[in-house]
Nucleic acid binder design. Structure first.
Lengths: 340, 340
DNA sequence: CTGAAAGCGCTTACAG
DNA sequence: CTGAAAGCGCTTACAG
């Protein structure tokens, strides 16, 4: 570490006090323009860079947000983080990221780290293993606001940014019904996860509403909605005495695998089976036929989380205890379900 | 902000000095086990959390790494960041992320922010717009180590983690030649970017080595190697009097678009045209036929960058000025090029 | 084994 | 318009 220039050094050089230097660089109204210019010029020539840690320490504000995501390399999360960084950057906050790797143990460790006053607020998406959220309760005691997105706690009141999974699944299923499908299947995610349960329920609700039977044989269950699980589900569909004529898949990966397996089996999509996915992953525009899917607003989720969080951080006399914001999704109709 | 418990509070409560509390919690050998236990217990019951900003300030170490990437939501970068976070986490560093959004202006702003002693070291991948790296030179003066990956500066000596793009392209092209291809095309990226130029040169070198002609008509140039540009290139190939029998694409997106356009045109892959991509994106395992590609070691690039950076941060009497580490890539042979 | 003291580099209420 | 002084919460060299 080299010797770094401080306010004191500038002060000595200019025969001013450190207070004046600080005010001049902070563009304080009480300082004369002449002084401001002198100070700025000296700061530039000496290459002064302020010590933001000293400032954070003094101000008890770090202008940092802590983010806990299961994994960064999952496209959904990388989009959310992109939205977070973008909104934070525009508001002069920076973003410190941690991956829980879907381990409850690691998630707990991370909350401990974040509870050292490192950050002014926290945005989290729970790990798959997380059932109870006790390890997040300390933030409230410390006065550190907390916002969850996507996988949110159910066991305590918290700020949450979500989409309406039930409604989205209902819309997707209704779209298949309106396109003329009568035997509609569903590839479901892990039912202990709220959002995947809601997608299943939305699917069922649409069937009920339009007086179509709910046939458990057409509902396939998976653990991770992985591509490979999708392949298995597709094979099971092919083994049925009668194929479904439409399938709503709880994510795009399984939808893509179904399309591929079915086409290999000589089945026309969408003519014989129409397919709808969920998430609007990049692959949905590449797979042939292009996949009808739900835009889950990942980037906007990041923006909205950050906007809410910063408001909570900066509004001292905020009397709202917790807030749940639901974003509108969007059905994107593409070739995989165009029947008429 | 609520009133927070400090070392002083604990000290008063236990009739000890703050120094002792600090040492006890830091597991200093000079403190008796009995005292350590008393202090730890009290800290737990009062819910003491240390103020890491105060500690950073005092120690002149933040244990934070600053990352500048063009975008977080590009799969390559999200993988690198994942590798960075993983290695950093295991070594008790945290990771603060900024996106340049490929804007030189924003990249400069970010370097300014990072030069406020916020971080102990910086990992960067240059924006597309960046030609000169003067804005990074200040880090050296501040004693803040800097490591670049992937898109690295050419105009000054710096620590760099790269793959051998020339060699990888050579290997990919050689694979096509060994598979029997005689008319091999290339879809090239922006030639002002070093890595894409190296890929083109590696391709040419392989052709030369094996005494195949370099036919400029078979070399397509793109700006961003986007999917849509790939579609255009594919159409241009189709318009040629004679098709190539193999194409090495500088990334997977263009390779995928070529496969799709060619198949729509009734061309068999790999029998008529063998295709090789670059990067091993998830889609390479989904597209049919599965795409032969180069594993570009994104995650490992993140790990290696962080390992090098932390070494530079912690090794005070390091006399190495700058270091360039080249990672081995791997040719992954899949259906799109299996000719024999 | 424990304590008193100094100081990291800022910011700001108070005084002039 | 400018300055002197206090203090944010830690850590550690020094002393005992």
């Amino acid at each position: 570490m080299k010797n770094r220039i401080t306010l004191k050094d500038l002060a000595k050089d200019l025969n001013l006090s450190p207070s004046t230097i600080s005010r001049a660089l902070g563009n304080h109204p009480a300082i004369s323009d002449a002084t401001k210019k002198r100070v700025q010029k000296k700061a530039d020539t000496l290459g002064f860079t302020p010590n933001s840690i000293a400032s954070s320490f003094r101000m008890k504000k770090t202008r940092s947000l802590g983010i806990i995501v299961p994994r960064i390399d999952i496209h959904f999360h990388s989009l959310v983080i992109s939205g977070i960084e973008d909104y934070a950057y525009k508001n002069n906050y920076n973003v410190t990221i941690f991956q829980s790797k879907n381990s409850l143990k690691r998630e707990k460790e991370i909350t401990k780290i974040l509870q050292t006053r490192m950050v002014d607020g926290v945005i989290g998406c729970l790990s798959i293993e997380t059932k109870s959220c006790d390890h997040f309760k300390k933030f409230d005691k410390l006065g550190v606001p907390l916002v969850f997105y996507d996988r949110v706690p159910t066991d305590f009141d918290a700020n949450k940014i979500v989409i309406n999974d039930f409604e989205s699944a209902y819309t997707a299923t209704k779209h298949l019904i309106k396109s003329g499908c009568k035997r509609i299947g569903h590839i479901a995610g892990n039912q202990t996860t709220t959002i995947f349960n809601a997608r299943l329920e939305g699917y069922k609700a649409a069937l009920k509403k339009y007086k179509l039977p709910i046939d458990e044989a057409l509902i396939m269950h998976t653990n991770n909605l992985s591509y490979d699980e999708g392949v298995n589900c597709a094979k099971k569909y092919l083994a049925l005495p009668e194929l479904p004529d439409g399938i709503f898949c709880a994510n795009d990966y399984t939808a893509v695998s179904v399309i591929q397996v079915f086409r290999k089996g000589g089945i026309n999509i969408p003519q014989q089976v129409a397919i709808v996915g969920f998430s609007n992953y990049p692959i949905s525009r590449i797979i042939e036929p292009n996949l009808t899917t739900i835009n889950d607003r990942a980037f906007q989720m990041g923006e909205a989380s950050t906007k809410l969080l910063i408001r909570k951080i900066e509004d001292d006399n905020d009397i709202i205890d917790s807030e749940i914001i639901t974003l509108k999704t969007e059905l994107i109709i593409r070739e995989s379900s165009k029947l008429n």
